[in-house]
Design a protein around this nucleic acid. Structure first.
Lengths: 163, 163
DNA sequence: AGTGACTAAATGCATATGCATGGAATAGTC
DNA sequence: GACTATTCCATGCATATGCATTTAGTCACT
């Protein structure tokens, strides 16, 4: 295996990091200006709201969101503190628990989507044609295993995406 | 202006975030396993080593790295604490100072590039053809203003990139 | 020369994150 | 049934980050 990346691969990686970081900063700023909590709250609430029963095991949320276990634990803490979710014990597995979204959580998720979708349009949608967006997805898929991912395209068709 | 992004734009954004995050985690893990400090140290040392005089104003470093001022200040603190850089006063502007890379800093930057380049090849280079990498760059450039950016392609030709 | 606006950089305080650890429980094997 | 490895989740401690504020200095204008 080659040990040195080509200049093209290196440039692509650097560009990927810089652009993603810049756009994410802009999106987060838009959300903050609109008075919303961090994007991770939205992501968690979205995953919970998409669950048929409105509840998930923390370990499932952890897998969907691709964050460390201790991050999941603490994110749930914050959602619970704000009344956006509740913890309930899992009868089948006493080690674990369920996290269930509350009505307030569903409301916030919907409201955040309003600002989040506007931010996506502003920083991404207005700069890429649909054809280019599809091309970008295809290229990015080469870098990450997309098969095991949440079916983002299918979910996006619902109009409310997963991250 | 449209308020709602297309499903393609949304999917592209989500994919961008997930893939970048996954690849960055993998790269950071590789660096950590090799016993190196965080990638931000590398970026700062690279910027400093590329300066003709080996020194920069913190505000210049801040602009190159696209990080907040207080992050720059603290990152420099850490580099200085480890003997990788030194702070020197700026005669022309008594408010400011110069940050100069040390020999140890140049050494670390080179050593890190060895592991960093291998990680880029492993997680990016082995998965994208050069043609695809160029396409990816072109698409990403649509999302961010690349004119004012550090001339990454030119820098990459040196074999040691900027982020 | 004086002044107001702006800049460069550090820092206090609060919050978030990284990591390893620990406790309780489950699952698989013998 | 006993035992072991693994899993699920929370958390202590240390470090990093976000933010506003502060201080010292610069610059353009009058």
């Amino acid at each position: 295996m080659k040990r040195k990346p080509s200049t093209e691969a290196t440039a692509a990686w650097i560009r990927l990091m810089r652009v993603q970081s810049r756009v994410l900063d802009a999106v987060e700023q838009d959300l903050k200006k609109a008075g919303f909590p961090p994007l991770a709250w939205y992501d968690a609430l979205l995953e919970l709201s998409r669950s048929p029963t409105g509840e998930m095991r923390p370990v499932e949320l952890e897998k969907q969101m691709l964050i460390p276990q201790y991050s999941t634990s603490r994110l749930i803490d914050r959602l619970v503190d704000e009344g956006l979710a509740v913890r309930r014990e899992c009868k089948m597995d006493k080690r674990g628990q369920f996290v269930e979204i509350t009505e307030a959580g569903r409301e916030l998720q919907k409201k955040m989507w309003g600002a989040y979708s506007a931010a996506i349009e502003k920083h991404v949608g207005s700069k890429l044609s649909d054809a280019d967006a599809l091309k970008l997805c295809g290229l990015l898929d080469r870098l990450g295993c997309s098969c095991g991912d949440v079916k983002a395209p299918a979910i996006v068709k619902e109009g409310i995406p997963s991250r």
